[in-house]
Amino acid sequence: MNIFRLAGDMTHLASVLVLLLKIHTIKSCAGVSLKTQELYALVFATRYLDIFTDFISVYNTVMKLIFLGSSFSIVWYIRRHKIVRRSYDKEQDTFRHYFLVLPCLLLALLIHEKFTVKELLWTFSIYLEAVAILPQLVLLQRTRNIDNLTGQYVFLLGAYRSLYILNWIYRYFTERHFVHWITWIAGLVQTLLYADFFYYYFESWKNNVKLQLPA
């Protein structure tokens, strides 16, 4: 485990815990896209199937359980919690996320490493994670301003993906371990999606103005 990988996992953990804490504490999910949260819950559910069959390490298993638990908790809060659900912006969060799920499913059926159910679902989860943030970014554009916790959430997710790319580069040069090109491309696409958000996030932070995304 290299520092990039550990830092990446920690920022990813922070992003979901920050979001869960915000929703639990202020009993509000204003600015949060339920669609993105549902997509992430699906990403984890289809990627962590091996949690019961392949034991890699305590760390690996514990982190998978935390990610599964937190992502499904966030979906539960927004859908079911009597107070939180009132602050969910149904009219604005209209991204048809099925338009993301189906192409990822088809792509996984076309491009994969092994044609086994577990591998297909794993590949599907890699593709889906790359685009899962889109409903959230669209919602942020629509609601124009970003309350800082949602901004932090997207920022931490972007940081986690960037660190994972550094981790893959590091592993390529040290362990002769190469990441399958499928994972490379999906990971790069995902990170690039954050690039413009990063630009506006830093601009607003530098000029100390409220973060505004251009329409």
């Binding site: 996992d9 690996n60 982190m63 998978k64 994972y164 362990e175 002769r176 190469f178 399958h180 994972t183």
Partner: peptide
């Protein structure tokens, strides 16, 4: 040969 895909990652 090196393992191909990062299955030990999250």
């Amino acid at each position: 040969n090196p393992k191909s895909v990062a299955k030990d990652e999250l």
